[in-house]
Design a protein around this nucleic acid. Structure first.
Lengths: 70, 70
DNA sequence: CAACAATGTCAAGCAAACTTTACATGAATA
DNA sequence: TATTCATGTAAAGTTTGCTTGACATTGTTG
């Protein structure tokens, strides 16, 4: 689950703790997500995407996966 | 978690079992999702959205929630 | 009627998301 | 140096997404 979470968080100048508070999860969860450790639920993904004013697909790079060949 | 899953599945003429097979989950999971019982992971949500050629946000009505007043 | 396909329900169990706590590290700064 | 802030790690525990299996219901069709 690679994603743009860390990039976007740093770009907006938020700490992990602040971001966690904004979307209502623990800081651990933010750390794990940034490290790509798992697959969030769509409600959490959506909350995060909204913080950065982007779509779930963009934040979590869903359209970029598995292009394999073209 | 209201969503357009059932509507889209019926519109495309798939059975619950066929849809489950396509996205790699059990039929029970499709039933529960159609009933709005839970909050799928983004990878499952994305697989489902792709079956119907739409975005996660549209399939799961994420932008429509909580408008409260306008 | 019998048989089958599609949907639904219930319940037990497993796996993964998410929490909580505690501690460690490096950078910045008084 | 000592303190504080942001990040990281590790482990144990809770919650919930998801599976499996068994059975019931309704509609259709031979």
């Amino acid at each position: 689950m690679p994603n743009r979470l860390r990039e976007m968080r740093e770009r907006t100048g938020l700490t992990q703790e602040e971001l966690a508070a904004r979307v209502g999860v623990s800081r651990q969860t933010i750390i794990s997500l940034e490290k790509g450790k798992y697959n969030p639920s769509i409600t959490l993904a959506y909350s995060l995407a909204k913080v950065f004013s982007m779509s779930i697909e963009d934040l979590f790079l869903l359209d970029e996966r598995k292009v394999e060949d073209e």
